[in-house]
Simulated scan of single mutants.
Amino acid sequence: MNGPTRGYWCECWTEQVTGTEEPARLASFDAYSAPQADRWVAIALRTISPALDSDASDEAWTWLYEERAETRRALMRSESCTVTITHADIRIIWAIRPVLFLPLTHRQDAELPACARSFKPHHAD
């Protein structure tokens, strides 16, 4: 079994600017390099930019052409980053944070740890 792998956990959230509703997670992504993590945000921004209002579109393209390099440098220093775009009354937030991905034990290739036998199936009554 291999050890932990460094990577980045990426999430996309939306929230109302007024804060009247709970934030909603739209997507998550596991990236294994800083370029892969910031590329996830870049692809999303390029995809949605035609549907954004002009201010939000300007924010998106500013990040893509002026701020993206700094985001990647921060990720390479193992710093968490956020990219935020506000469209009308909705704030869209991409959050990227460094993580360690733990390997999973494959049920066919290895002996499961002893604690695996202590879990009993739950039966609804």
Rank of each mutant, 00 (worst) to 15 (best):
A24T: 14
E15S: 15
E22D: 09
I85Y: 02
H106M: 10
G3H: 10
G19Q: 00
P98R: 02
H87S: 10
D58P: 11
A74G: 00
E11R: 07
S78R: 11
A34N: 01
R72M: 13
W9D: 14
R97A: 12
F119Q: 08
V17S: 11
R77W: 01
C10M: 06
I43S: 15
A34P: 01
T5I: 04
R6P: 15
W63N: 02
I92W: 00
L26Y: 00
T62C: 06
E59C: 06
S54Y: 08
L102I: 13
E67Q: 03
G19P: 04
T18K: 05
R107H: 04
C81H: 00
L64Y: 12
D58M: 03
P4K: 11
D109V: 06
A34T: 05
T14R: 07
F101M: 07
L112Y: 05
A34Y: 01
H123C: 10
T62Q: 01
R77G: 05
F119A: 15
Y8Q: 10
P113F: 00
D125L: 10
Y32M: 07
A110N: 13
K120L: 12
A88R: 04
W13C: 12
A37V: 03
S78Q: 13
E22K: 08
D38S: 13
P113V: 02
E11H: 11
A42Y: 01
G3Y: 04
Q16M: 11
T47R: 00
A27W: 04
I85E: 07
T62N: 02
A124F: 10
W94M: 15
A34W: 00
Q16C: 15
P103R: 00
D55K: 04
T84W: 09
G3W: 02
A34S: 04
A110L: 11
I43P: 14
E70N: 13
R46V: 14
G19W: 05
G3F: 11
W61G: 13
I48D: 12
F101P: 13
A74C: 05
C115D: 11
A88M: 07
E11Y: 02
Y65R: 12
W63C: 04
R107W: 05
P103K: 01
R6Y: 15
Q36T: 07
Y65F: 12
M76C: 00
T18H: 09
H106Y: 02
T20N: 14
H122T: 11
S78D: 15
L75C: 09
L100P: 11
A34D: 05
L75Y: 01
A42V: 03
P4W: 05
G7Y: 03
T5G: 08
P98T: 00
E66N: 06
S78E: 15
T18R: 00
A124W: 09
L26N: 11
W13T: 15
E79F: 07
L100F: 13
F101Y: 02
R72D: 07
P35C: 01
L75E: 07
P4R: 09
A114N: 02
S80C: 14
W61F: 12
T62H: 02
